[in-house]
Design a protein around this nucleic acid. Structure first.
Lengths: 195, 195
DNA sequence: ATTTATAAAAAGAACGCTCGTTTTATTAAA
DNA sequence: TTTAATAAAACGAGCGTTCTTTTTATAAAT
């Protein structure tokens, strides 16, 4: 069979699983659920993934990869430092609105439960990228000189928190509207005072 | 049997479950695990809790109650506003160091997966209390006037984030040492400028 | 162009195991 | 003697996975 067919099937599994793992929890979604939801047989699923865990692994890699791509593209497009951080926040908010399942999977699903090799989400590709970004800004003197742990928490903490509020259904409004006020708040805590 | 005996058994189950649910995930801890871990039979467990879900419910109520108590006590002991927020942060950090399983259970375990009645953790007792606290401070003019969602995220986001870093094993150092620098950062973003 | 050979892909029944729970029996306390 | 508490075996359902069979696509041979 063609490569197209294989990719199509894998994509079907990806689509269904990322949605349902995030929504119902990894343990609450069985192979038979996936089978029903995708219209594939258990045999077909096991032909493409040697185990349920391998599906989760594939989801994890794909999801973190997609998020990283979006962030990197956003940063590379911006000219100045002030805009870069704002752009990261905006991108994450937009991604949450556009692909809530992707974001839910990346932030919520307890990967440690079933992915024994995977690092905790805070050490995943996108977060590592942002960490490097922060470190560079401190070195350049754009951000106040402070402990990396403190800086990373002050910057990403509020962003993740507000995303979770949205994903929990507490926040009904469009996340993107919060970009500027949240950025302003974060900026006060980390940007160097211009005396 | 005496009430003491009943409470002792319940406590044994509580101790074992809060530790293992947080560590291994609700679905990965079976009744037989609990039985082995506590030295009780499945019959004994089901005599005290009519279902596994009821255990989780009990853990949730107890854990959030304990955290709320600690926060409330801390706030009530402090005299001025500046100290109150710092005290909340310190208390949460201390609690993380002293009772990591309690904190892990409260922040990590996906309650929605099995507790269909329970609110998301951000709407639990401790968080509601802190929300009220923030709202009051804004009204009093201590905190800058801003959207509640923004304020809550700017304050609790970094705190939760740093706690998670510790619980993930990324942060090795004592959390309490981060109280002051983190508070200072948060303060810059929310306290009213004294012009 | 049609047939045939080969492997990829999918189907679906079956297996063994573990789960949450129930049942029945036994022990300890009042 | 009656009830609270524990023990342990048993039940049915559902799980992840494997196995065997059938279908489908691809390419070479006629």
């Amino acid at each position: 069979m063609s490569e197209k067919s294989r990719d199509l099937t894998k994509e079907k599994i990806f689509e269904y699983c990322i949605k349902n793992f995030a929504e119902n929890g990894y343990s609450n979604v069985g192979i038979r659920n996936i089978s029903e939801g995708t219209g594939l047989s258990t045999g077909a699923i096991y032909y493409h993934f040697s185990s349920k865990e391998k599906i989760a692994q594939f989801l994890y890699d794909t999801a973190t990869g997609l998020i990283l791509d979006r962030i990197r593209t956003a940063v590379e497009k911006t000219a100045n430092d002030q805009e870069a951080l704002k752009s990261i926040i905006f991108t994450l908010f937009k991604l949450t609105e556009e692909e809530p399942h992707l974001m839910k999977y990346a932030l919520y699903v307890k990967h440690k439960d079933f992915l024994h090799e995977a690092p905790p989400i805070c050490s995943s590709k996108p977060f590592e990228y942002i960490k490097k970004f922060i470190k560079a800004k401190i070195k350049e003197g754009v951000f106040e000189d402070m402990d990396m742990v403190i800086a990373a928490s002050l910057i990403m903490g509020p962003v993740i928190r507000i995303i979770q509020l949205k994903m929990d259904g507490i926040l009904k409004q469009d996340l993107m509207k919060y970009t500027v006020p949240l950025f302003d708040g974060i900026a006060r805590s980390i940007y160097k005072k211009q005396v």
